[in-house]
Structures are given as structure tokens and as C-alpha cells.
Amino acid sequence: MKELDPILHSQLRLAVMSILMNVDEADFVYLKEQTESTAGNLSVQLDKLSNAGYITVTKGFVGKKTRTTCQVTEQGRKAFEEYVEALKAYLNL
């Protein structure tokens, strides 16, 4: 049986990817609220997903405040789909 992707098989990273798979883009504040995570932890997990090439993180400015937006990449989309298929196989669905 295919091994579950270790990048995705983690609670917060999987939650972020599940959200991003369903929207075009989401900002840091929205992800923090939806995943009920701390800013520090979320930031670390976003970096891991970004380094794996699963998401793109764009930092911009709105007035004087920074705004970080995230989007899933084609590679991330493929990895997520494969992860869900692997889950189904493990669970005999």
C-alpha cells in the first residue's frame, strides 16, 4: 500500500491544504481563524508546505500592514489528490 505523504499527514498542514484546495486564495488571518492555530505555528507549517512546492505564499502590503496570501500549486493539488486516494485505500473506501 502506498505510504501517506509525510508533508500532508500532519494536522495543521492538512487543514491548510484542505482549505486551499477549496478556494482560489486565502490570507494568513483567514487560515489562522479557520484552523484555530497560533500565528507562529501556522507560519512554520506554511513555510514547510511552501518549501515542498505545495503552496505559493505571496507577501504584500495593504496600506502599512503586511498581507500574506496563499494559493495551492498544481504540484500541491496533485499531492493532495494522491493523499486522499491513499487514505481511501487504507480505509478500504
Partner: peptide, 14 residues
Amino acid sequence: MEEKKMTEKESLEL
């Protein structure tokens, strides 16, 4: 939400 490992069932639920 913590960064922790989950069972397959928990993953699907999440």
C-alpha cells in the same frame, strides 16, 4: 490546532 500525527480516519474527518 497542533501539528501532530493523525490516524487515517482522523485525516479524512479533518
